[in-house]
Simulated scan of single mutants.
Amino acid sequence: MVEQEVRNAAGEVLPAWSLGKQGQAQNEAERLDHRRCGGRTGVAHLALSHQQQCATSTKAECVSIDVLYPTVSRRRRSLITPRKPRGTGEWVAAAVVGVILSAALRQGAHAAMSALPAIALIVVPVGLGCAGLVVTARRARRSALARADRHRLTGVRLALAQLDTLDPTGFEHAVRDLMIRDGINARHVGQRGDQVADVLGQDQTGRIFVAQCKHTTTAARVPVRIIYEVNGTARPVHRADEAIIVTNGGFTRDARIQAAKFGIHLIDRDRLHQWAHDGVTLQTMLRYPVTLH
């Protein structure tokens, strides 16, 4: 059996009996640990020796043991804990590091600002080019859809009996389809708050058409009030070149007189038959003067 020596703070060898029962138990545990480690001093042995020496040593001596056996006396930390500088030297070092980092940041910011014009020369043209491609693609798509609609509606004919059976929204869609048939890129916009416009369109020359639709199932006549409403929004709001009111009924005499003064085109039941059933184009219909009867 290996006899483990026990020394005091002065380095003198102490007999095992001088430790008392607790010391002997610790000495016995130390020998068992020494035997498990194959006769070599292990971590557990160092820890036990450290406990024994701290029990009989001063605080300063225990600190020196902590320095000698850092892996045993203190638990290793996984992260570095920041702390305030201690002493003049550490404060000076921290100030130097701060100055260096500040200078590096200023230099980096200056370099970034210097590079902005070069970056702008690259980014701005690329962005404008991408935006141009998007706009061109959208215009091409709209043109393709308009061509498809014109092809689909080429030669379309609608009888008055068919138009009479429609509801107001269906009638607005029928007017839109007739405008598309005649080469006008038209879309339905009629809804609440439409500002007195049910169909908006533009032909290949750039002329803007605004159509207000009035469907009736009782052969009613459109009053003069509608003329004033259309006149108040067609040109000021929708920038219309041609303002049109379409009905499957008729117009009052006052409405016809006021429409002639405002330059608003009226398509009553008779002219609707020529446009929808006979195939006369809207451009031709707009050359007809407004009749007063």
Rank of each mutant, 00 (worst) to 15 (best):
residue 265 H to N: 11
residue 57 S to P: 03
residue 279 G to K: 00
residue 222 V to P: 00
residue 232 G to K: 10
residue 255 A to L: 03
residue 165 T to K: 13
residue 16 A to N: 07
residue 293 H to N: 12
residue 18 S to R: 05
residue 42 G to T: 06
residue 94 A to W: 09
residue 15 P to G: 08
residue 198 D to S: 00
residue 18 S to A: 12
residue 282 L to F: 09
residue 251 F to M: 01
residue 177 D to V: 04
residue 99 V to C: 14
residue 119 I to W: 11
residue 160 L to E: 07
residue 66 D to K: 06
residue 15 P to A: 10
residue 201 G to V: 03
residue 210 V to I: 06
residue 176 R to G: 05
residue 223 P to H: 02
residue 283 Q to I: 13
residue 268 D to V: 02
residue 111 A to E: 15
residue 62 C to G: 08
residue 144 A to Y: 10
residue 22 Q to E: 15
residue 79 L to Y: 14
residue 273 H to L: 12
residue 51 Q to N: 09
residue 185 N to W: 10
residue 261 K to L: 09
residue 260 A to W: 03
residue 181 R to N: 04
residue 127 G to T: 11
residue 133 L to I: 11
residue 90 E to A: 09
residue 146 A to M: 10
residue 158 L to I: 10
residue 13 V to D: 04
residue 41 T to L: 15
residue 163 L to R: 00
residue 219 A to Y: 11
residue 257 I to F: 06
residue 3 E to H: 10
residue 31 R to Q: 14
residue 225 R to L: 13
residue 212 Q to L: 09
residue 210 V to Y: 01
residue 20 G to V: 05
residue 46 L to F: 02
residue 257 I to G: 01
residue 54 C to Q: 09
residue 92 V to H: 09
residue 57 S to Q: 05
residue 49 S to M: 14
residue 59 K to G: 15
residue 157 R to Q: 04
residue 58 T to Q: 04
residue 169 T to V: 15
residue 219 A to S: 13
residue 146 A to I: 07
residue 70 P to D: 02
residue 27 N to A: 15
residue 92 V to W: 07
residue 257 I to M: 09
residue 167 D to Q: 06
residue 10 A to R: 13
residue 60 A to R: 06
residue 287 R to K: 13
residue 95 A to G: 13
residue 59 K to S: 14
residue 179 M to Q: 00
residue 159 A to D: 10
residue 232 G to R: 11
residue 120 A to D: 10
residue 31 R to S: 12
residue 127 G to H: 11
residue 145 L to M: 10
residue 284 T to N: 11
residue 173 H to C: 10
residue 20 G to N: 00
residue 60 A to K: 05
residue 7 R to F: 13
residue 2 V to A: 15
residue 180 I to E: 04
residue 161 A to H: 05
residue 287 R to Y: 09
residue 38 G to Y: 03
residue 3 E to S: 12
residue 278 D to F: 08
residue 158 L to K: 06
residue 259 A to T: 03
residue 218 T to S: 15
residue 189 V to M: 03
residue 115 A to W: 03
residue 4 Q to A: 15
residue 190 G to D: 05
residue 41 T to M: 14
residue 49 S to E: 13
residue 37 C to H: 12
residue 273 H to Q: 15
residue 214 K to V: 02
residue 265 H to D: 09
residue 64 S to V: 13
residue 224 V to T: 07
residue 239 R to K: 14
residue 95 A to Y: 08
residue 106 R to Y: 12
residue 52 Q to T: 09
residue 275 W to F: 04
residue 58 T to L: 06
residue 251 F to T: 02
residue 167 D to I: 04
residue 233 T to N: 08
residue 258 Q to A: 12
residue 121 L to C: 12
residue 187 R to K: 08
residue 47 A to N: 07
residue 204 Q to Y: 12
residue 280 V to A: 04
residue 3 E to C: 08
residue 112 A to T: 07
residue 159 A to F: 11
residue 42 G to Y: 03
residue 234 A to R: 00
residue 130 C to P: 09
residue 39 G to T: 02
residue 262 F to Q: 08
